[in-house]
Design a protein around this nucleic acid. Sequence first.
RNA 1: GGAGAGGUGGCAGAGUGGUAAUGCAGCAGCCUGCUAAGCUGUCAUCCUUCGGGAUGCCCGGGUUCGAAUCCCGGUCUCUCCGCCA
Length: 423
Amino acid sequence: MLQVAQIRENLAAYTEALTKRNIEAAPILEKAIALDETRKSTQATLDAKLAESNKLSKEIGMLFKSGKGAEANELKAKTGTLKEETKELGEVLNSTIEELNALLYTIPNIPNETVPAGNSDEDNEEIFVEGDIPKLHDGALPHWELAKKYDLIDFELGVKIAGAGFPVYKGKGARLQRALINYFLDKNTAAGYQEVQVPHLVNEASGYGTGQLPDKEGQMYHVTGDDLYLIPTAEVPVTNIFRGELLQESELPVTLTGYTPCFRREAGSYGAHVRGLNRLHQFDKVEIVRVEKPENSYAALDGMVEHIKDILRELKLPYRILRLCGGDLGFTSALTFDFELFSTGQDRWLEISSASNFEAYQANRLKLRYKNSDGKNILAHTLNGSSLALPRVLAGILENYQTPEGIKIPEVLVPYCGFDIIN
RNA sequence: GGAGAGGUGGCAGAGUGGUAAUGCAGCAGCCUGCUAAGCUGUCAUCCUUCGGGAUGCCCGGGUUCGAAUCCCGGUCUCUCCGCCA
């Protein structure tokens, strides 16, 4: 969440920046400042009363010690009204803080100055395109047909076991997916990211820490019996490793990578664009997460983008990079680059990665700080990116590498697969 | 699931009703010719008119003039038992 001190200092700039998200922010931001003023003045009054009360208590203690019980009892009588007043003020203070926090949770992150204005994904800015779009033979198929033809993925079987959006991968399909996971992890660790394996269920505090709660409550599967959430992305458990942590400056940057399944309810998403692997309730993803000093976070984001480019080049897949517009930017993100892969079988772009800088927005919720050289505790910046999301990369490989003889395996994956063609 | 013990600063660790010791690590300065030590300061959060003040001992309540300390509820960890990949 945003810091009130920052809101106060940058009111005009924040209001302006939030118009990119199509939010009329002025009244909300001003209310936050007003609530904070109330909080401060209530706190000041309360502190003064408490100081008085503490002083009396000390005196009473001294008097009892020196055997002046009568005088002590006299003083005791004075504390009654003070006690009532502090109790009332305390209640006002608590409800003010609660109201302020609830309000802050509803305010999204401030978009970076480079974020273009816009309403939807149509307004995203294409900043980079690379790779050749293959010319396919006649009778080329979309991946869901290929999956059936070569018996790689069984969508109906998944329906029987769980429901729509929970596919069963079989044989070479399963092996290809596992190959991709291992390849991604190897690429990430070779680039210096430390591999972690994390829980796939998280508690409520973790959901709040990275911002999925309360904003996206309905998008996560909720295990009500134990009040846990199935992770929608590894971002949640991996970033929450650092919830409440105070790091030494020398520990930064932190760079982690992890493979997890991801669970998303995707309520209300149906239609042609969700066929096959395009949109699932359960899918696999390899994620990279960084914790950075504020002054380094944008360079780190660029580094993540270059790293993902490198992977897509090795896989020889045609892709483009978009700078998300304000209307499409995630709630907690200040700047996001989406990677899209061209799906020849469907003749459209598919999102396969999203790399974001959250600046201090998550860190403020997480209470993730580091001690700088002046001994001050500074909120760190957090970043994450997919490197990469499995199903659509798998779909892209099936579609773009199909030939009349079968589906060729990208060269870098052959050692991971143990075969070079699916036929 | 049952029983018991426990949760104190970045870390370790005292403190059983009178207002959070000490050590280590970090940071700043001073000093000393020996791989570093010593000394001083700093080292949780908020407010401040920069004098201070308040909060903070897992979380939330309660008792008390006063709670890390006593009481109630919750939560997590550890040990033993049970179950079990």
